[in-house]
Simulated assay, not measured.
Amino acid sequence: MQYEFTLPADYDMGIIRERVAAKGHLLDDFPGLAFKAYLVRERGVAGSPVNQYAPFYLWRTGAGMTEFLRGPGFRTLSADFGRPPVRHWLAAGLHLGPAADREPTTAVREQRPVPETEDAGEALDAALAGLGDRPGLCAAAVALDPERWELTRFTLWHHDAPDHGTRYRVLHLSRPEIRDL
């Protein structure tokens, strides 16, 4: 699951960093949540054209996601920034990399269509296996949007990530139930 708040070009991103520093720990024990990566993009940093707050969640249960979306944290966020559209996918796998015990600093979201001529299961397996155990990889999640037939691969890195996809800076990682799916 991911939602994005694109903020004005002159927005003080320190406000987001302070908010995450003060409230990020609130989901460190949230039931049904594998992990939440508190992500930002800052205009002019690492090639980003925008200021954006765009957290990414990997849920172990649909009930956990539902509870979060109807709970006080999301209600407060929506009151402060407006209720965002929430993208959600079917989780197809999670791979913990060699740096799984390290704090991630960078995240990358890659998305690509799965054409009708391609087997969706094989595409998902290949997206997960294609990462292997690259140095610096904390975790890789693969998911499918069956409405759009779009594959999403989300990776967390302990150091700078490969230069492809949409890159984010990780401000905090809540990981109450992270383990291989």
Rank of each mutant, 00 (worst) to 15 (best):
A120Q: 09
W149E: 08
E67V: 02
D119E: 12
W157A: 05
I16V: 15
H164S: 10
S174G: 14
W157D: 08
G136Q: 04
S78R: 07
A22H: 11
A63F: 03
L137P: 03
R75K: 15
P115M: 04
D28A: 13
G130P: 10
P98Y: 05
R109Y: 01
G93M: 07
F154K: 06
A91W: 00
E150F: 00
L181I: 05
P113T: 12
A139T: 02
A46G: 15
L77G: 02
P72I: 00
V170N: 02
A161D: 03
L94T: 12
G24E: 13
G136H: 05
P104Q: 09
D119F: 03
Y53K: 10
R109I: 07
H95W: 06
T117N: 04
L77Q: 06
L77K: 04
Y3C: 05
H164D: 14
A140T: 01
G71R: 02
I178E: 11
E150W: 04
H172E: 12
Q111M: 12
D160H: 13
R109W: 04
E177W: 10
A99G: 06
L90Q: 08
H88L: 10
L77Y: 01
E177S: 12
A21C: 00
A9D: 15
R169W: 02
A120C: 12
V142P: 06
V108M: 07
I16C: 03
Y11E: 11
D180N: 06
E122W: 06
A161R: 05
L156P: 00
